[in-house]
Structure formats: C-alpha cells, structure tokens
C-alpha cells in the first residue's frame, strides 16, 4: 500500500497466510502471536521475537513505535527495520518478515531467517498484536514526553491512538472536498513546541466563480498542529509526486531501508540522520539538515533520524506505479541525479 492506495500489487508464489493469535499469558495479560515460524510475545518491558535460527528482544516501547509505523504505512516503501535485526520488506502485495537478513554478522553466521507472507495476512496479525499490546494511555505515534508509558502488565487499550486514519490529500489540503485544514475546532491544537509558529492565513481573493480553484492554506500552521510524530501525510499531489510533510521529535522509530530515492526538505529546526548501508547496516554517512536544507536518501541505504526540538520536515515521495516494476526488475536507479 505504502503512501498511496493505488500502488500496484505484485503477486509472489508461496506467500504464506499462516498466522495465528495464540493463548493469553495469565501472568502478564497479553496474548502471543505467530506468523509462520516467527513467534511474538511481550512482557512488562520487552517484545520477544523467536524464529527457527534464533531469538531476539526489543524494548517494548521501541517495538510498538516501529510496529505502529509499519501498520500505518502499509509496510511503506522498501525495508522497515524495527532495529538491527527484525523488520519487513514490502513487495507490494507480499511482504518478507525477516530476522538478521540485513545484518552482515547474522548472515555470515547463518543466523538470518526470512519468510514471505501475503501482505493482508501479515497486516492482520500485526494489527491484532498492536491492539493487544498497546495499553491505555500509550500512544505509539506521540513523542515520548507527550504520552503515557508502554510498560507493565496488560492495562486496557488505546484504539483511538492506533486507529488514526493517515491523511492523504487527493489534490491539496483545504480544497473543497479534500482533506481539511487543522484547527482547534476539529481537534488539532498547536503543539507545545510550535507555539510561536504564525497561524496567519494567506490572503485569498478569488473572482466570482473561481472560489473553488483559487486556494491556499498555511502549511506551516497545519504542521504545527500535527498530533503525531514521524508520520508523513500527503498534502499536495502533482501526478505521482507526493508532498508528505510531517513533524518530527525524538527518534524515527524505524531504520528505513529505501527501495527508491526519497527526498527530505527541512522546513524548520534541525534533524540529524544516521545513514547506513541498506544490506549490511554499516555506517555510510551522517547528514545534518537545517532549515532550508534539501537532501536525497539514495535507494541503497537505510536511515534513521533524530530531532530534539520538534521540527517540520517535508518528505517527498514518488508513488509512481512504474517504480514498483523497476524495483522488481532491479532497474530502479540508486541515485536520482548524476552530476
């Protein structure tokens, strides 16, 4: 699915639908889950992932934040590394669940394992896991200082937080019939870190009859009212060119392994990016972006970002269906510009 709902799907033979909700643990109150040979269970502090060649542990808050993105973004573009061991690769119709597949120590030791799943089947079990393991008060989309705690035994649920609909404007935010602007009245107060961001509106003076076409909105004010972090949403569309601005605070919960070039334009403040090799995980660069900086993430890297103060970032994606086929055939360009 990724950022648009019209991404073509590619069928792959052997994609498994073998998933299961397992028994409830009476000591913690959480259910365990299974996807093929992968097992998932949580306790008060950790997610425990088992697979035929080993096992792995993640802090539960980090696991839930990563799982939330993978679910909300429909497995996104390319690889979603939950951390240096576990993650998914989107084949747009099927998805690989892996452990150690993009970690050269694991692969050299033969400890890596991966299985191919039908996307809908894995998404279903991921959603059930997310719903069961997210306690009341914990919002995996929120900055750590703006939410409750993920720890402890089963304590209610938070369906409103994990069930948000991703914003995907069809043409531009604010146009009649399209995604509305954010206001206090529709439940989007200004974030504490953006209290100083001007909320003025553009001066729009349409001639009679052109009220629906002469249109503008305050994008920075719109971003100042975002209630989530690290969650790009489409605000304007030119063909398959998608402007997906987002507000960022703390750490990008995944290490995103690109399968296509992805662009970042820093609208405000500052983000540091760690860039590693997509396959091996070895460091390749650090990118410090300040307001006005624009940079490309090549298609052979993985990246994660750090933003101390909440910042505004324009993520620019190309959702063209032709790229899916180029990726499948290995012909997608690694860098978008040669100079």
């Amino acid at each position: 699915m990724a950022m648009t709902n019209d991404t073509p799907t590619i069928s792959r033979a052997g994609a498994s639908k073998d998933t299961a909700v397992l028994n409830l643990d009476n000591s913690t109150g959480y259910r365990a889950f299974r996807a093929g040979g992968f097992g998932f269970r949580r306790d008060g502090y950790f997610a425990h992932i088992s697979f035929p060649t080993g096992n792995h542990v993640m802090s539960i808050d980090a696991f839930l934040r990563a799982l939330m993105r993978d679910v909300a973004w429909g497995f996104f573009y390319g690889t979603v590394n939950f951390d240096h061991v576990v993650g998914t690769v989107n084949h747009y119709g099927s998805v690989t669940l892996f452990a150690g597949a993009f970690n050269d120590a694991y692969t050299e030791a033969g400890r890596n394992h991966e299985e191919l799943f039908d996307s809908a089947a894995l998404m279903d079990i991921f959603k059930k896991m997310l719903a069961d393991w997210t306690n009341d008060g914990f919002d995996p989309f929120a900055a750590p200082t703006e939410t409750g705690l993920a720890w402890g035994s089963k304590n209610g649920a938070n369906p409103n937080a994990i069930g948000r609909q991703r914003v995907t404007a069809k043409r531009m935010v604010g146009l009649p019939g399209d995604t509305p602007v954010r206001t206090d009245a529709n439940g989007f107060p200004i974030n504490r870190h953006f209290a100083d961001v001007p909320q003025d509106l553009p001066t729009v003076e349409p001639e009679p009859g052109f009220e629906n076409e002469v249109s503008a909105f305050n994008l920075f004010a719109y971003l100042s009212r975002s209630d989530v972090t690290w969650n790009p949403s489409v605000c304007s569309v030119v063909g398959e060119s998608l402007f997906c601005p987002t507000s960022e605070e703390y750490i990008l919960p995944i290490d995103h392994g690109n399968d296509r070039a992805e662009w970042f334009l820093q609208f405000s403040d500052e983000i540091d990016w760690d860039v590693k090799d997509r396959v091996t995980g070895r460091p390749r660069a650090r990118v410090r972006m300040k307001a006005g900086d624009i940079a490309c993430m090549p298609a052979d890297i993985r990246h994660t970002g750090y933003s101390t103060k909440r910042s505004m970032l324009l993520v620019w994606e190309n959702g063209s269906p032709k790229i899916v086929n180029l990726i499948a055939s290995g012909k997608a360009p690694v860098v978008p510009v040669i100079f």
């Binding site: 531009m172 146009l175 052109f210 909105f217 305050n218 920075f220 609208f267």
Partner: peptide, 12 residues
C-alpha cells in the same frame, strides 16, 4: 483572482 502568500503558505 489573487493570492498573497507569506512564509509557510502553499497555493494551488
């Protein structure tokens, strides 16, 4: 018509 944009404003 006419639109007057200031910092952060997006127009179609």
């Amino acid at each position: 018509g006419k639109i007057t944009l200031r910092r952060g404003h997006m127009a179609l």
